[in-house]
């Protein structure tokens, strides 16, 4: 076997890299080389995907600070699966341990920062979050487990990031955070962390939530991009299988913002949704656009009953 003979395969590997934004590459090692070098490993794991032991979610219990998380529960009516499963069950022992120890979890640095932001006065009204909401441990307990919510004023669903921005603009006289601003991820994580362990559920009876759910469902099953993949192609039809060296989970959102080892930082839900869509080589919808909000409504429902794990740790 000569090296030149392998070149066409390398070419394919390289094409796969060209669509990845440079921001994704946290460490300056030649990632394209990395990809080529590990191509055989990647192919190998595709070969392994037939071995069920490699693919099944683990049988393990997640306890964070003495609180047992619901990582596996009966799916709501009309759900394609019988059971909904947290992404935690699909990760390695080491990654699972990182989330289970709230001190070791590096995302807690972001939660700490969010706690400081909560107390910081900003904007023309001279208020902080705490000025109105007091102690977040009380006022925000359980709140984050029930977003997105219907917003009668804008006649759209709002998620936690948008709710924070509304509050900043309307009540604090402060500027809305730009998408994925460090502070946005920190404060969102801090507020959702107050619901740690609470079962996630959203109210579809409010406003037009049902119509947004329908739209989200339609998008979930719509194939897109050069790879012609729908959300459901990976996270439903291939759930539990390997995609190259990665384990396909149900794509649950109960841990967002989540610490991804790859990015070495907190990653927001819309960042991840966009990343997933980019990986199908499709045009990415904007963060908080109608499309992504509809998908958020629908995929949040798909995780009904799972404990909030924000900030989770994933690969």
């Amino acid at each position: 076997m000569t090296k030149s003979r392998v070149n066409p395969v390398r070419g394919v590997g390289h094409m796969g890299r060209t669509i990845v934004s440079k921001n994704e590459i946290k460490w300056g090692l030649s990632v394209s080389l990395f990809g080529v070098g590990l191509l055989s490993v990647g192919l190998l794991s595709v070969g392994l995907s037939i071995a069920p032991a490699q693919a099944d979610p683990v049988d393990d219990t997640l306890v964070i600070d003495g609180k047992e998380m619901i990582t596996r529960t009966a799916a709501p009516e009309g759900h394609p699966f019988k059971e909904v499963l947290s992404g935690w069950l699909f990760r390695t022992e080491e990654t699972r341990a990182l989330e289970a120890d709230s001190f070791q979890n590096p995302a807690m640095l972001g939660v700490d920062e969010g706690a400081e932001i909560w107390e910081t006065v900003e904007g023309t009204a001279g208020k902080s979050c705490a000025s109105c909401h007091g102690d977040a441990a009380e006022s925000m307990a359980g709140i984050g487990a029930h977003y997105p919510k219907w917003d009668p004023e804008t006649k759209r669903p709002v998620n936690m990031e948008l709710k924070i921005n509304q509050c900043r603009e309307k009540n604090m006289g402060a500027e809305a955070y730009k998408f994925d601003a460090r502070e946005q991820k920190a404060l969102t994580s801090f507020i959702k962390y107050q619901s740690l362990g609470d079962p996630m559920s959203i109210d579809l009876s409010q406003g037009d939530m049902r119509a947004w759910w329908d739209k989200g469902k339609e998008l979930y099953y719509t194939r897109t991009g050069q790879l012609n993949l729908a959300c459901g192609s990976c996270h439903e039809a291939s759930m539990g299988k390997m995609i190259r060296a990665d384990h396909l989970s149900q794509g649950q959102v109960n841990g967002f913002p989540t610490y991804r080892l790859k990015q070495q930082g907190l990653v927001s839900l819309h960042n991840r949704l966009r990343g997933c869509i980019r990986d199908t080589r499709a045009e990415m919808p904007k963060a908080f656009s109608d499309d992504l909000m509809a998908i958020e409504v629908y995929v949040t429902w798909r995780g009904t009953g799972l404990s909030m794990e924000t900030p989770a740790v994933r690969h």
């Binding site: 460490w27 090692l29 640095l109 920062e113």
Partner: peptide, 10 residues
């Protein structure tokens, strides 16, 4: 634990 990018220079 400490928050730091640890920019590798690479």
């Amino acid at each position: 634990l400490i928050s730091h990018e640890m920019e590798s220079g690479q």
